[in-house]
């Protein structure tokens, strides 16, 4: 059914369809609420998810998150009791309070594979939020549902739709609407302040990860710059429809020279503004130093704390905002 391999950094186009269904879902679920008095855990409501219509507690208290739902749920102020492990880099980029929340949860599995189901049953959760590949979910669906109501999102759920679904099922919708408002304001502010730049400048976002072979980098058309392109409206390159993202192609350093056709280059930095460790070899190369954009101060470091939830996206936009402010004026 689903044809493109997408996870976490899904393409916005595909997601448009899905978010419609989820919006409908969100509307439907509100009506089912019984009166708000009495023991909140005894009440239930129904939510719509990729694994059907699920009856969940009205106010779940013991939530377990599996796969990509962990960080978005924590970002919404949720406090999961059990989680699958996140990479050290991802955790280090969280704000401190979120790091503490993550650290207090029980680790159910390294990465999302082989969730320790018996351990999960021991925790007695009242809600399980899951985003893992379809095939993996299929293998453990029955077991999970026996333990607690399970809400599953397929990998092609785009981050906004995922946030909607998680907020709905986990009963943290208030935090979500607050984040949405802040996000919208931030986008509007950037568009207003840098209107001319956005309209008349060609950008490219490049990056390099630990997973890149030495001497290679890639054009980041997925990840944070996707937000800059699709929400803010920056002129950033995009893969042809249906093709793999440009980011899947690693380019040799020989290709750095080709970047001269863009006016502004953005590259990844850490929270302190230093180039991220994997990216350092690019900054140190002679070809990079010889680029016009670099020589004239039009290579901007931007911090990307994650692109899978509103909180992280807002922090990214903050960083983009201050980076754009340093652009030298056009003659």
């Amino acid at each position: 059914m689903t044809t493109t391999p997408l996870r976490r950094r899904g393409a916005a186009l595909v997601a448009a369809l899905l978010s419609t269904t989820l919006v409908l879902t969100a509307c439907g679920s509100d009506g089912d609420d019984a009166d708000d008095t009495g023991d909140p855990t005894a009440q239930t409501r129904t939510v719509q998810a990729d694994n059907g219509t699920i009856e969940v507690p009205a106010d779940p208290q013991r939530v377990a998150t599996i796969g990509n739902t962990t960080l978005p749920f924590i970002d919404l102020g949720g406090e999961p009791i059990g989680v699958t492990e996140e990479s050290a880099t991802n955790v280090a980029r969280l704000p401190e309070d979120q790091q503490a929340t993550y650290a207090s949860a029980k680790i159910l599995a390294t990465s999302a594979d082989e969730v320790d189901l018996e351990e999960l049953a021991t925790l007695k959760p009242d809600l399980i939020l899951v985003q893992i590949p379809d095939a993996e979910f299929e293998a453990i669906e029955k077991q999970l549902e026996l333990i607690a109501p399970t809400v599953f999102f397929g990998l092609d759920a785009e981050w906004k739709a995922l946030a909607d679904g998680i907020a709905d099922a986990g009963n943290v919708a208030d935090a979500l609407s607050q984040q949405k408002k802040e996000f919208g304001d931030k986008v509007a502010k950037i568009q207003e302040t840098y209107g001319e730049v956005i309209d008349g400048t060609s950008f490219v976002d490049i990056s390099r990860g630990d997973f890149n072979d030495p001497g290679t980098f890639y054009i980041a058309d997925i990840g944070c710059s996707e937000i800059a392109r699709d929400e803010v409206g920056l002129d950033l390159p995009e893969a042809a429809e249906g093709a793999d993202p440009l980011a899947y192609e690693s380019l040799s350093f020989e290709q750095i020279g080709e970047l001269s056709k863009y006016e502004v280059i953005t590259y990844p930095v850490d929270a302190e503004g230093q180039p991220t460790e994997p990216f350092v070899p690019v900054v140190e190369s002679n070809t990079w130093k010889a680029l016009d954009a670099v020589k004239s101060g039009r290579a901007l470091g931007v911090f990307c704390p994650g692109n899978n939830s509103y909180g992280a996206a807002i922090r990214y936009l903050d960083s983009l905002d201050s980076a754009l402010a340093t652009l030298p004026a056009e003659e």
Binding site: R7, R8, E114
Partner: peptide, 23 residues
């Protein structure tokens, strides 16, 4: 190499062979 990290890990886990979740 062409795959996304999570998918690659899922594939590697399958490739390692596992009796997890066998019914």
């Amino acid at each position: 190499i062409k795959a996304d990290l999570d998918q690659a890990m899922a594939a590697a886990a399958w490739g390692a062979g596992s009796l997890y979740g066998v019914s």
